[in-house]
Simulated assay, not measured.
Amino acid sequence: MGYVTSLFARKMVAAAGADVDAAAVLASVGLDAEGPWDPKAMLPADSYYDMLERIAAQTDVTDLPVRVGASMRLDEYGALGLAFKAATTLGSSYARVERYGRLWTSVVEYELRPDPRGTLFILHRSGERRLGLRLSNEATLASAVSIARQVSPVPVTPLELLVRHPAPKSTASHAGYFGCPIRFGAQLDAILFSRKTLAQPNILGDEGISRYLISHLDAELSEIAEEAPLVARAKDAIAQTLSEGAPRMADIARGLGLSARSFHRRLSEHGMSFQTLAEDTRRDLAEGLLRDESYSLSEIAFLTGFSEQSSFTRAFKRWVGTTPASYRKERSSR
Rank of each mutant, 00 (worst) to 15 (best):
G2C: 04
S6G: 14
L7W: 07
A9Y: 02
A14N: 05
A16F: 00
S28F: 10
V29H: 12
W37D: 15
A41L: 11
S47H: 11
Y48S: 10
T59P: 03
D60H: 05
R67C: 02
G69V: 04
A70K: 13
M72G: 05
L74E: 13
L74F: 09
L80E: 12
A83W: 07
A87T: 13
G91A: 06
Y94Q: 03
V97L: 15
G101D: 06
G101V: 04
R102E: 08
R102H: 04
V107M: 08
V108Q: 10
F121N: 02
L123S: 04
H124L: 07
R134K: 10
R134L: 08
R134C: 13
R149K: 09
S152F: 06
V154G: 04
H165P: 01
H165C: 07
K169D: 11
R183H: 10
Q187A: 14
L188A: 13
D189W: 12
L192D: 11
A199N: 05
N202P: 01
N202R: 11
G208W: 02
E220P: 00
P229Q: 05
L230D: 07
V231T: 14
D236R: 10
A237C: 03
A239H: 02
T241Y: 01
G255I: 00
G255K: 06
E269L: 13
E269N: 10
G271R: 04
T276A: 15
A286R: 04
L289C: 01
D292T: 03
E293A: 14
S298E: 15
L303E: 14
G305H: 02
G305A: 04
S307L: 08
Q309V: 15
R314D: 12
A315G: 09
V320P: 00
V320E: 09
G321E: 15
